[in-house]
Design a protein around this nucleic acid. Structure first.
Length: 272
DNA sequence: AAGTGGACCTGCTAGC
DNA sequence: TGCTAGCAGGTCCACT
């Protein structure tokens, strides 16, 4: 579900509401991807800081360490000023002096992990090896060109791998490659420097537009206040197999790369 | 080292 | 109507 825009929309929608709040209690539902790594009681009484984001991870600082959160495929964080009874897929509740922060995650690929800091413990391990933030000024075509050098894997899969640039998931990888006119099957190391520049621009623009639209709501994504995203309506290729390309009219094709669906226009997107 | 496939889970939909 | 196969926004890990 959540790629960078959805995670960032989530962060922006809850962070100000809980920053400075005190933890009153923690409720755990069914197990998530990893154990919490501390007792729920040990979080009690601590004051929350302002949440930040790295790739698709969220970091919620506490007085002692913090919580690294990931939404997996189906997770969403909801904030409500009032207590509310948990549903069957609500697997983590942070009750605070300023309201409830709740992770709703039917598939439970998401995670909430306590770490002593971002630079040590589980957070350091999970964040190690992540690529450049695509909305930072340092993200340029050269980052892609250098990162892709020598790699035989398809450029679509290289984007998803997250070790060159973070936050680009299945939807936005497809959309950005379409916008850049690059065939998703092109070996990453064969994407020329100028085309890496185009791709970097396309990634920035696609993510920024998705962010402005409140993310994509394909089935269940909502921000922390329950609002839908709207970017799914702006998708040019994702989920549009068989529909005419908005540029040339050629039917959009679907293929499978690394067990993930890729959507692309066989006419607009070229290998070189 | 880089690439591949399996694993983790539940819910929904299309098709028979 | 009811069952089943296939699919879904992620990413870690074991293996070649």
């Amino acid at each position: 579900m959540p790629e960078l825009p959805e995670v960032e929309v989530t962060r922006q929608s809850f962070a100000p509401h809980v920053a400075g709040a005190r933890v009153l209690g923690v409720r755990l539902g069914k197990p998530l991807r990893w154990p919490l790594g501390c007792t729920p009681e040990s979080l009690q009484g601590q004051v929350l800081g302002l949440a930040s984001r790295r790739g698709k991870y969220l970091w919620l600082p506490l007085e002692r360490g913090g919580l690294l959160m990931h939404l997996g495929m189906s997770g969403s964080l909801r904030y409500s000023p009032e207590e509310a009874p948990p549903g069957p897929h609500d697997h983590f509740d942070l009750r605070t002096s300023r309201g409830l922060l709740r992770l709703h995650d039917p598939r439970r690929f998401g995670a909430v992990v306590w770490s002593p800091s971002l630079q040590t413990g589980p957070a350091a391990k999970l964040l190690a090896g992540l690529g450049v933030e695509p909305l930072e000024p340092s993200f340029q075509g050269a980052v892609l060109h250098t990162g892709f050098r020598g790699r035989q894997v398809a450029v679509k899969q290289a984007l998803l791998a997250g070790d060159v640039v973070v936050g680009v998931g299945n939807i936005y990888a497809c959309e950005a490659l379409f916008a850049a006119g690059i065939d998703p099957r092109t070996p990453a190391g064969r994407v020329s420097r100028p085309r890496c520049e185009r791709l970097a621009t396309a990634i920035r623009d696609t993510l920024a537009r998705a962010l402005a639209a409140g993310g994509s709501t394909l089935r269940d994504f909502r921000d922390a206040h329950g609002h839908n995203g709207a970017f799914q309506d702006e998708a040019r290729v994702y989920g549009r197999e068989g529909q005419p390309c908005s540029v040339c009219g050629t039917p959009i094709r679907r293929l499978v790369q690394g067990q993930r669906s890729t959507y692309f226009c066989p006419r607009c997107q070229r290998r070189s």
